[in-house]
Amino acid sequence: MASFLAIWGGGEYVANRLGAERGIYERIVGKELHRLFLAITPQEFVLLHLFAFAGGIGMGILLLGNPIIGAIVGGAAGAWGPRIYLRRAWVARIRGVDEQVEEAMVYMSNSFKANPSLPEAIQDVINSMGAPLSQELSVLLKEYKLGTPLDQALVNCQRRMPSRNLELAISALVIGRTVGGNIPQILSDISNTIRESFRLERVIDTQTAQGKMQAWVMGMMPGVVLGAFYLLDPELITPLFETLPGYLILSGAATLNIIGVSMILKIVSIEV
């Protein structure tokens, strides 16, 4: 009887703990989904994450043929896949805002010349441009209409969206409004600065393209060589995939290969 109560109490504790952890995860995911403007609830994303985890295990076992290795590899892919998707979507969103700011400053400058009202100029940008910048500016205007001072709403927008170009534009706008500068000229100068920055980025990308290609070629070469040896003499390579020392050798080689490629890409990546 005591053993049964202990097991029942332990199971209840585990269930409560899992429920609490799920609630924490849903809150974290909810914030990420909200900032990405995705039409999906945290509960739905958690279910999709569980399906991805289970499906990854099944696919890993099916493709690799080894239940243990397949479950580990597939489970890891299913567990990290949705999180990686959210991260990449956030990076792509920041990049999208960066690319739209220059054009938005042109729209805003022209609108401000016709009607010297910054909220109206922001509304014109929202009407003229698409997501993601229009979504961020819509939130800014909603805050302003609900009573938040315009300068504070601009700062809040800057904090929500860590875009380098948007930060430059908002900082210049806030300073210009504070000291009473020529807002249309400030917006035009920001547009020119961002345009020149993009030009320099394209030049740097062209100059470093060869180094990046060399990194990827070097990263793929071990796999190509391994495949060639397998075609020439399968018995020589088979122990790498069927024995523990082979697993350790492959894991170590893959880790060193990833580190090497990452270091090369880090060297040839230049921030403007």
Results as ranks from 00 to 15, higher is better:
72 I>S: 07
62 L>Q: 12
230 Y>V: 11
120 E>K: 06
132 P>T: 01
8 W>F: 15
116 P>F: 09
108 M>V: 13
36 L>K: 02
176 G>N: 12
28 I>Q: 13
193 T>P: 00
224 V>G: 12
85 Y>A: 12
171 S>W: 10
59 M>S: 14
260 G>W: 05
139 V>I: 06
259 I>F: 05
228 A>M: 15
112 F>I: 07
69 I>A: 14
129 M>V: 06
30 G>W: 06
106 V>T: 15
87 R>G: 12
146 L>V: 02
62 L>G: 11
197 S>Y: 01
94 I>A: 05
19 G>N: 05
195 R>W: 01
202 R>G: 05
135 Q>L: 13
88 R>L: 14
82 P>K: 13
206 T>D: 03
247 Y>A: 14
37 F>C: 01
51 F>M: 14
177 R>C: 04
121 A>E: 07
139 V>Y: 00
157 C>V: 05
166 L>Y: 08
170 I>A: 12
20 A>H: 06
104 A>V: 12
171 S>H: 09
36 L>A: 03
251 S>V: 11
90 W>F: 15
105 M>I: 13
135 Q>I: 02
261 V>D: 03
251 S>W: 06
183 I>E: 09
189 D>A: 11
121 A>L: 10
77 A>R: 01
27 R>G: 04
199 R>V: 09
107 Y>R: 11
237 I>R: 06
43 Q>N: 15
101 V>A: 09
44 E>L: 15
22 R>M: 02
13 Y>I: 11
233 D>L: 14
188 S>R: 14
73 V>D: 00
98 D>F: 03
243 T>F: 04
14 V>R: 01
185 Q>F: 07
192 N>M: 00
6 A>H: 00
185 Q>A: 14
199 R>M: 11
154 L>F: 09
38 L>M: 13
265 L>P: 05
81 G>K: 01
218 M>F: 13
9 G>L: 08
253 A>R: 01
175 I>N: 10
168 L>Y: 02
23 G>R: 11
178 T>C: 02
79 A>W: 09
181 G>Q: 12
193 T>M: 06
118 L>C: 06
212 K>M: 11
31 K>W: 00
31 K>I: 07
172 A>I: 11
255 T>E: 00
229 F>D: 07
132 P>H: 06
150 L>E: 00
24 I>H: 05
30 G>H: 06
230 Y>A: 15
74 G>A: 10
126 I>Q: 11
173 L>G: 13
41 T>M: 08
66 N>Q: 14
54 A>Y: 04
9 G>V: 01
182 N>M: 13
189 D>K: 02
134 S>G: 08
138 S>A: 11
248 L>Q: 00
196 E>L: 08
73 V>Q: 00
234 P>K: 05
165 N>I: 03
262 S>H: 04
